[in-house]
Amino acid sequence: MPELGKYAAEVLTAYGASIVLMTVLVLASIRAARKARKELEAAEARRDDR
C-alpha cells in the first residue's frame, strides 16, 4: 500500500465506488449477454426441430 496520508479515506472511497460500479456494469452486461444467447439458442433449436 502506498502512503495515502490524511486523505486515505477519500481516495479509497473514490476508487472503491468506481470499481464497484464498473464491476456491476460489466457483470450485468455479461449476464444479459448469456441470457440472451441462451434464449436465442433455445428458440433456434425449437425452430430446427420442426
Binding site: 456494469l25 460489466v26 452486461s29 455479461i30 444479459a32 449477454a33 440472451a36 444467447r37 434464449e39 436465442l40 428458440a43 433456434e44 425449437r46 425452430r47
Partner: peptide
C-alpha cells in the same frame, strides 16, 4: 462493452422474432 451489449440486443431481437414466428 458496446460490442457485447449490442450483440446482446441483436440476440434479443432475433429471439423475439423467432418467438413471434
Amino acid at each position: 462493452l458496446v460490442f457485447l451489449r449490442t450483440r446482446t440486443e441483436i440476440h434479443k431481437r432475433r429471439t423475439s422474432a423467432l418467438l413471434a414466428r
